[in-house]
Amino acid sequence: MTDLSTAAALTAEDLRRPLGRDATFLQLSSGFCAPCRATRRVLERVVATQDGVAHVEVDVAHRADLAERFGVTGTPTTVLLDAGGAPAVTVTGVPSLAQARAAVAALRAGA
């Protein structure tokens, strides 16, 4: 995981989707990526079991601006945004369910 705490915040307008009340997983994916589908399942499970958490998946082919902003060199890349849309951490590859839940818990504990 990479610390992004000094990066500029994203808004709902930037993402074209609402932010979660407490946290938002921004998943940067590509259409042909099997690990992206696995990541989607993990993050959707977290969202389904934790109130205030959202998941926004974008295809890097359609959102090159976000891919460039976060230096995406491979998909999936997931950025955890705090309640204000500020990037907190990023991870490339498929996170485990435990890792995703722990990241949200750490974000909430630091709030």
Rank of each mutant, 00 (worst) to 15 (best):
M1C: 04
M1S: 07
T2H: 10
T2C: 08
T2F: 13
T2E: 13
D3Y: 01
D3W: 04
D3P: 07
L4T: 01
L4D: 02
T6W: 00
A7C: 06
A8D: 14
A8L: 08
A8C: 01
L10M: 04
T11C: 10
A12I: 06
E13T: 12
R16H: 09
R16M: 10
R17L: 06
R17A: 15
R17P: 02
P18W: 00
G20A: 06
R21G: 12
R21L: 15
R21D: 15
D22K: 15
A23S: 09
A23F: 10
F25C: 13
F25I: 07
L26V: 04
Q27P: 00
Q27W: 00
L28D: 05
L28V: 10
S29T: 11
S29Y: 01
S30R: 13
S30N: 08
S30P: 05
G31S: 10
F32S: 13
A34R: 11
A34D: 04
A34E: 14
P35H: 02
P35N: 05
C36F: 03
A38R: 08
A38G: 04
R40I: 02
R40H: 11
R40Q: 14
R40K: 13
R41E: 15
R41T: 15
L43R: 00
L43D: 01
E44L: 14
E44V: 01
R45S: 14
V46E: 05
V46L: 04
V47P: 01
A48S: 12
A48M: 11
T49I: 04
Q50P: 11
D51S: 15
G52K: 08
V53W: 10
A54K: 02
H55V: 12
H55I: 06
V56R: 06
V56D: 03
E57I: 01
V58F: 01
V58H: 00
V58S: 00
D59G: 00
D59L: 08
V60K: 00
V60N: 01
A61W: 00
A61E: 13
H62A: 15
H62N: 14
R63A: 12
R63H: 06
L66R: 00
A67R: 03
E68T: 13
R69L: 14
R69I: 07
F70M: 11
G71Q: 12
G71F: 07
V72F: 14
T73V: 15
G74W: 09
G74D: 12
T75Q: 09
T75S: 12
P76A: 10
P76H: 02
P76T: 01
P76I: 02
V79T: 07
V79I: 13
L80N: 02
L81M: 09
L81P: 11
D82A: 10
D82T: 03
D82P: 07
A83P: 10
A83F: 06
G84Y: 01
G85I: 06
A86N: 04
P87C: 09
P87N: 02
A88P: 01
A88G: 10
A88D: 11
A88S: 12
T90V: 06
V91Y: 11
V91I: 12
T92L: 13
T92F: 03
V94N: 02
V94T: 14
P95W: 11
P95K: 03
S96T: 15
L97C: 07
L97I: 09
A98I: 14
A100M: 02
A100V: 05
A100F: 03
A100N: 02
A102T: 10
A103W: 15
A106H: 05
A106W: 02
R108S: 15
R108Q: 14
A109Q: 04
G110N: 09
A111H: 14
